[in-house]
């Protein structure tokens, strides 16, 4: 089993245990008249069982593979770009209300274009400004979306 797969399976297992505890506290009532915790409890137990099953199966499979021949597991090499994108999105969420739509969107686009064209900063600056203006025109002006302006005010 790949390391990532194991982490996901274990996270699901932890979630399952959490759901079981939480739904038990919600109230199960009776079998003939189930309460709000009944259905999530069943799901939590089911999730734990499935995770257990997948771990057992994977452990068996890994044993078999390792006895036959040792193979090198290839992990994805490029996690930097997805990581940068996630950071950009989180940054956009944090700064949208403070910096306002025009400034935060400009920086958001600038960094994203910079990922693809790291040396063409002038081109991507101009392109980002045009896109911010276009986006505001379509969504803010025509579709009347009330974007925040942060410290710039309205």
């Amino acid at each position: 089993m790949k390391k990532g797969e194991l982490i996901i399976a274990l996270s699901m297992g932890v979630l399952g245990i959490w759901i079981v505890i939480d739904s038990y506290n919600m109230g199960l009532q009776t079998i003939s008249n189930p309460g709000p915790g009944f259905f999530p409890l069943v799901l939590g137990v089911l999730l734990c069982l499935l995770v257990l099953l997948i771990c057992i199966r994977s452990a068996r499979y890994t044993k078999k593979v390792s006895t036959v021949k040792k193979t090198s597991v290839e992990y994805p090499t490029n996690f930097i770009k997805p990581g940068l994108i996630i950071a950009c999105l989180l940054g956009y969420f944090f700064f949208l209300d403070t910096l306002g739509f025009p400034i935060s969107t400009f920086f958001f686009l600038f960094i994203l274009f910079w990922i693809g064209y790291p040396r063409k900063w002038l081109f991507i600056s101009i392109f980002s400004v045009i896109l911010v203006a276009l986006a505001y025109l379509v969504f803010g002006y025509l579709l009347q979306t009330p974007f925040p302006f942060g410290f710039l005010g309205n």
Binding site: L89, L96, L112, L131, F139
Partner: peptide, 22 residues
């Protein structure tokens, strides 16, 4: 590399415009 920033811009504006909250 030109398309994906546009898709993401569309995503953030779309998500924001549901309830007008970040």
């Amino acid at each position: 590399k030109i398309l994906f920033p546009l898709i993401l811009l569309f995503c953030v504006i779309g998500a924001y415009s549901i309830n007008y909250r970040a």
